[in-house]
Simulated scan of single mutants.
Amino acid sequence: MNKSKPRVAIVLLSYNSLKLVREFLPKIIATTNHVEGVEIVVVDNASTDDLSPWMAENHPDIRVIKLEVNKGFTNGYCASLPQIEAENYVLISSDIEVTEGWLEPGLELLESDPKIAAVQPKVMSFDKREYFEYAGAAGGYIDHLGFPFCRGRLVNEVEKDESQYDDVREIFWASGACLFINADAYHKSGGLDNDFFAHMEEIDLAWRLKLMGYKIMFQPKSKIFHMGGFVIQYGSPGKVFRNHRNNLIMLTKNLPAYQLFYKIPFRLLLDYAAMIKMILDGNPKSSGAILKAHWQYTMMLGKWLKKRKIVNSLKSKTPNHFGICPKSLVYQFFIKKVRKFPDLHWDPVEKR
């Protein structure tokens, strides 16, 4: 470990969430003050709720990076992380409640193998404490068409935590709500894609890291609670727009060339099917968000293809494809009515 750098910088990103910072920051401090080499940094993403003055008065020893303009969740980190020197980062949202002993297991796993670029803790629901939370649950995977899912969450069905996923294991992607990540790997990969603004940016980053040959891991001994949907509500038109647009961008950047030409058109067709379902369900605003996502994706296709060239330049000779499910999540969930991860009858760890 570089003696001149902190072992880890816990980077808390906040936008108009002073109420949450007041509640949750003391817990971060209390659960990490005994760990050597920890720095806490609060990023004020152009908040209008007096976060920075409150920090100066109540936590003058904690560094605050104030951004003058809010350009999205991704930019909060893209603008702040180059200013923070540390061996590792923990990127943590303001709507996260940590638990006693949450930091050490994730950090130790991250440092145990130079091939491990990132680690995800167990992500639990803040409101329904015995259930996993949508954004990450017990570690993320992706199907061959680019639909993400988790152990503990398929589509919108979330499981109760009964210790069924309490094993340390490799996953495909780790939740951005609380992400342990090696600083060098983060910066070598190019970091979060600022064009994503919010949603799926962590999956895109994980995919890029895996193409570089790294591993992403899940550590159940590190446990946090996530409120979820604090800034943009789940199922809102804004979230639907960014999920559909960003998924197409992610596929364009990371898919093998021979798959790109047939999977993108097929995904567009599936999106239209989802749009029809939204209309039938009485949600026309969200269906319109899909059309907007397709339009913006198509109008800026040249930009996404340039990003693809950058990803190709980073690829290892031995890329890591672990965690891509050959089955269709849409078919399994909507046709076969599969609701739990074990019922997919696909486990990449067992197939090794």
Rank of each mutant, 00 (worst) to 15 (best):
V11T: 11
K27E: 11
T31Y: 14
G37V: 04
I40P: 03
W54H: 02
H59P: 12
P60K: 00
D61C: 07
R63V: 12
N70G: 09
N70A: 11
Y89P: 06
L91W: 00
I92V: 13
S94P: 03
W102R: 01
G106P: 03
S112M: 04
D113A: 02
P114M: 03
V119L: 03
S125P: 09
F126K: 09
D127Y: 10
R129H: 07
E133F: 04
D143R: 01
H144W: 10
E157S: 11
E159A: 05
K160I: 13
D161T: 06
W173S: 09
D184Y: 08
K188T: 14
K188W: 09
G191V: 13
L192S: 04
D195S: 04
F197Y: 14
E201V: 12
E202C: 07
D204V: 04
D204W: 02
K215C: 08
H226A: 05
M227W: 02
I232E: 01
I232Y: 10
Q233L: 15
F241R: 03
R242G: 00
R242L: 14
K253E: 09
N254G: 03
L260T: 08
Y272D: 09
I276V: 15
D281E: 15
G282T: 15
N283E: 15
N283L: 15
S286G: 14
G288Q: 11
A293N: 11
Y297E: 04
G302R: 06
W304E: 08
L305Q: 07
K307S: 13
R308G: 11
K309L: 14
V311L: 06
N312Y: 09
L314E: 08
P319S: 05
P319C: 10
I324H: 05
P326T: 04
L329S: 07
F333M: 05
F333K: 04
F333V: 14
I335K: 13
K340G: 00
P342V: 09
P342S: 01
L344I: 13
